[in-house]
Design a protein around this nucleic acid. Sequence first.
RNA 1: GGUGGGGUACUCAAGUGGUCAACGAGGGCAGACUGUAAAUCUGCUGGCUAACGCCUCCGAAGGUUCGAGUCCUUCCCCCACCA
Length: 425
Amino acid sequence: MPTIIDTLKARGLYEDQTSPELDAVLQQPTTMYIGYDPSSSSLQAGNFVAIMAMAHFQRAGHRVIALAGGATGLIGDPSGKSAERQLLTEEEVRHNLEGIQENLSRFLDFNHPTVPARLVNNYDWFKDFTFISFLRDVGKHFRMTQMLGKESVKKRMASDESGMSFTEFCYQLLQAYDFLWLHDHEGCRLQLGGSDQWGNITAGTELVRRMRGAETFGLTIPLVCDSQGRKFGKSEGNAVYLDSKKTSYYDFYQFFLRTTDADAARYLRIFTFLPLEQIGQLEEALQAVPEKREAQRVLAEEVTRCVHGDVGLTVARRASEVLFGGALDGLSLTDLLAIFANVPSRELPHDAVVGKPVLEVAAAAGLFASKGEARRMQQQGGLNLNNQRVADAAQVFAAGDLIEGRVAVLRAGKKNFCLVKIVAT
RNA sequence: GGUGGGGUACUCAAGUGGUCAACGAGGGCAGACUGUAAAUCUGCUGGCUAACGCCUCCGAAGGUUCGAGUCCUUCCCCCACCA
């Protein structure tokens, strides 16, 4: 019978493991955990890879624990960072944890009859830990040479401009202790993480071995990049979030729909639960008739449905059809509002819109940061009103441009839409 | 605490008295071509302005000067080594 490791490998979710014996251990249901950084109130598409790996574990009958780094988030992980990072306040972290919990609930079954997922916060076991007892009980088991030998530490020490603070240096102790705590209290034997977490994970297995004489394991998943080698999950310079308040259904769907051919099949394996045979077929279809973009479409639909449900998918799909369909003429106000419910909009008084230059309205609506930016965009032919190019810089917003006297659709470039709604003054 | 090196726009990075809203590269955005792809080509990338131009900007605050990113003083921060 294929193990969870075989599944992960086949889907491109496997990078490395600490010991070959892990394969045998995973023949039995095992408790594993993965840590999330609460530096944002919503998980990003970048966290997606880890979440999928975790979901595969749960589907394979293992017990999964999501660890929110409420305490470690107050310190900051130096791994993969070139510079010291900003510290979050305790309130910020608390707020962010709530959002993360909500995000995770869409992938993990917290009510599973036999192996319900758990969410824990390491602040709970760190908050009453005193510095002295931590040094005595935990610090004793760490050797300086090993700590200094960590890749994340070495890199920073060798850097000309960044260096590293004691606080960040201690991060690995905290993460190692997490593993120990979960081992003791939850019977956790495996930590999963991104490949940049290798050093922190081995610090944990090492600590458990020294203090408890027990063997624990680590498994890393690859850092997913696009075919250009760029880190996955950035769109127009902004991260793609799982929270629809931060990234709309529409933008979320579009992000996946715009996937490059070269990445489509790989993303399908990583980000969906579709059977590998079906993905193989989509891959062939993409070769044969690339312009149909079938693989991208399925990818966008699957992922959007998983994260935002059927409702989110419907909204995103309808908006996409309309926005890439041409003229908006036949649409009623009700339709428009429904379609654009999830697209950025701005409410403006009638007087600030009708009779004003379109450029000014576009800037006021928040489509551009300044009038100058709006002008540049217009000059380059990238400004559209109701899907019609604004060719004249001096064009004035006419009353007739308002659909049913209430809304108008502004667009910058191909894909940045903004709905202007008129409010009564 | 001492010595040396740094802090310039989204990032990297030039710039050592005027020609600097600040070279260059990357990134980003837009247009053309396409398939909402890739590649390619072109343009844009501090604010206000139709434009002339005005304003803000080079870690912070003062100062010298007709004129300062560039010189001086003090302060803050980062890095390395030493104590």
